[in-house]
Design a binder for these strands. Structure first.
Lengths: 219, 219
DNA sequence: GCATTATTTTAATCTAGATTAAAATTTTTT
DNA sequence: AAAAAATTTTAATCTAGATTAAAATAATGC
């Protein structure tokens, strides 16, 4: 691994991940697969045992690895958290995109988004990390994650506005409403662990519960 | 401080707090006041910078103290977190009690509870800690906090049921609905920091937003 | 099967931050 | 204002857990 030597002066350590151009998400190399497994294991740990309560050893154990092995995939723990959060944001964006593509009107899009997002969170792709430790990220990572988070909220508010426009959603303070709904979603991993049955019922019921208050009279 | 010597064999350290019978919350001794200031400072730190991102020094700095001084009030960091969470639970229970005392029917009680709880969270009594790190607590503390948390949820669900009974709230899955609403509430400190103006508008608007979906038709 | 590269482990170090003991200061009591 | 108690600080330790370097193993291409 020459690159390591090359960049030594610039940075003391070097995670192999930098080599693998993660351009095409499709071509799932062994490396990418393992890395994704790691991110899910980390998310599980962080959600269940808290950030500070989870050592790299805990995460590695889930994977049947040694803590040191994780350093092949990430530079340090901070980066692990960062990647978990980026993944969480990705998953949310994906759900939102699909909802927008398929939704017939504002309300329908909201309902779909909620369902899709929850389905991912509680399903095979999960668990997804709760972004509780954004402030612990180093400046650049923090900014980046906050930006993703802001964009997500903004997009959701946009959809709410569209719904108000097309008459499917009753007029409301979209900022506040968005915060309320996102809070509910983000909190799910706090009280739901594993158990696919409950998971399914959450995905079934939650969207309706959250959206009931949105519905404009006569819909 | 003889007690320290006396108990030395049993426990290495001893927090002064154990002396002060915290029986009567009314008689606010200097000690109790300082301790409460500390808990609010800690909650602020934990909410803003995350648990692992907050050192005892950070908390102490807010109070104009040295990190070591905190050990006069708590045995260790874990206990500090524990107390923050107990305080958060207390605040919630208080809001709920007041709402129950004053509410005219189920829906009204819910609306009042939400308002009171939020008012405390964003007001002078705040900030209130988000219970993100329950899993990091030692077994006994964790069980205790979880118990408080469960009781709170159960109580809220009870109120929802009453509302369904008296016709003010439309029939719904109370467990799920409770989780949804609690999630929104618990998440507030994540996006709201300081700024009293915004705080007030949250307390004004949030209850209505959250409860809109509950209202039974014709109310 | 050999050479090369990818992945993991072993075995140390390293470090921030928690914790402690004792001394110093402040507050309260009498 | 002295004595006692309460509170805080100073100055060390102490430690879990992150991090690293080098060696060992596994996978892959030829």
């Amino acid at each position: 691994m020459q690159i390591r030597a090359e960049l030594k002066s610039a940075r003391p350590t070097f995670a192999a991940g930098d080599r693998h151009g993660m351009a095409h998400k499709a071509e799932e190399t062994r490396f990418e697969l393992q890395k994704d497994r790691m991110l899910r294991a980390a998310a599980k740990c962080f959600n269940e045992k808290g950030y500070s309560g989870s050592s790299l050893k805990d995460v590695a154990n889930i994977l049947g690895l040694t803590d040191a092995a994780l350093y092949y995939y990430v530079r340090n723990k901070e980066e692990l958290v960062y990647l978990c959060y980026v993944r969480a944001a990705d998953v949310g964006r994906e759900a939102m995109q699909r909802a927008v593509d398929e939704g017939s009107d504002g309300l329908d899009t909201v309902l779909r988004y909620l369902r899709y997002h929850i389905e991912i969170m509680v399903g095979d792709r999960g668990p997804v990390a709760i972004m509780s430790e954004i402030p612990s990220l180093k400046t650049q990572h923090r900014e980046e994650v906050l930006e993703l988070s802001r964009k997500h909220s903004a997009w959701f508010e946009e959809i709410l506005n569209e719904g108000i426009g097309d008459g499917s959603i009753a007029p409301c303070d979209v900022r506040m409403t968005g915060n309320a709904i996102m809070g509910s979603i983000n909190w799910i991993p706090k009280w739901h662990h594993g158990d696919p049955a409950t998971g399914r019922s959450i995905a079934d019921e939650f969207p309706e519960i959250l959206a009931r208050g949105l519905r404009s009279v006569g819909t």
